[in-house]
Design a protein around this nucleic acid. Sequence first.
DNA 1: TGTATATAGATAGCAAGCTATGCAAAAACG
DNA 2: CGTTTTTGCATAGCTTGCTATCTATATACA
Lengths: 135, 135
Amino acid sequence: MTNWAARLFARAIDRRVKEFGVSSGQMPVFFALGDGAALSQKALAAIASIEQPTMAATLSRMERDGMIERRPDPRDGRSQLVALTPEAMEKALKVKEAGMSVNAVALADLTEAEREQFLELLGKVITSLEKMLED
Amino acid sequence: MTNWAARLFARAIDRRVKEFGVSSGQMPVFFALGDGAALSQKALAAIASIEQPTMAATLSRMERDGMIERRPDPRDGRSQLVALTPEAMEKALKVKEAGMSVNAVALADLTEAEREQFLELLGKVITSLEKMLED
DNA sequence: TGTATATAGATAGCAAGCTATGCAAAAACG
DNA sequence: CGTTTTTGCATAGCTTGCTATCTATATACA
């Protein structure tokens, strides 16, 4: 069921941000860099809770589509700092709004108390699964 | 967060069924056909709540790995009936147990009442998202 | 009966996720 | 100071998911 819900979220988001040339996997990047910040690939992967190669692929697609720029990190020769391009910055607000609006629709049938409980229980499930996967 | 949880579920399942040569996307097929039933590809896709081409790809991999057989449907020349092979049937019970055990671990930190509530709220979220995607 | 529509699968092409592995720069340490 | 270990990223190869589109068979209807 979580898989099902996750796919529905992704489809709903994709549908709303497609007009901006954006897709659901790029949402965490927009949320992390939408204020003009420049972060390393590793930091972005950690924020999105995905593995490094997955973030690398997402950033490659975003670079291909002119949404991000990679600049060498002056403080670390291995690292690069990723930032949104000016064109992507222009879209960032609308993209973030689309994400929040899908969230709102998904939770529309829940009371405020139910929403809190849902997030809390989902958090517990995630914690349990992460603990299981640790070893 | 649902995406995160779904990925953790998939990883946990993958880890447990890998020794049988099985992966998480095949779980719904094992649950649907584990009792010896033979169903059409369309029916399997509906049960798994995935699109037909996705199920087609999963079945192709399972056929490649000797887990399923496709036989022509005597009642419909377009359709094929899919069934687990005897070798897969032997694994089916353990595979299903692995799936249920991951579920159990994921819900381990929830009380019985919380589990019910969690499933109910998740169901509401799914319903809302499906309604949004209808048009 | 013959044409039009609907349905079951197949295929192509893409995104997003994973693991495993390799390389080069940085950091730690004897 | 040189060697070893760690760390950041790239790459390869796979699965699972999607949409769009095609073919062939069934079904409906004029």
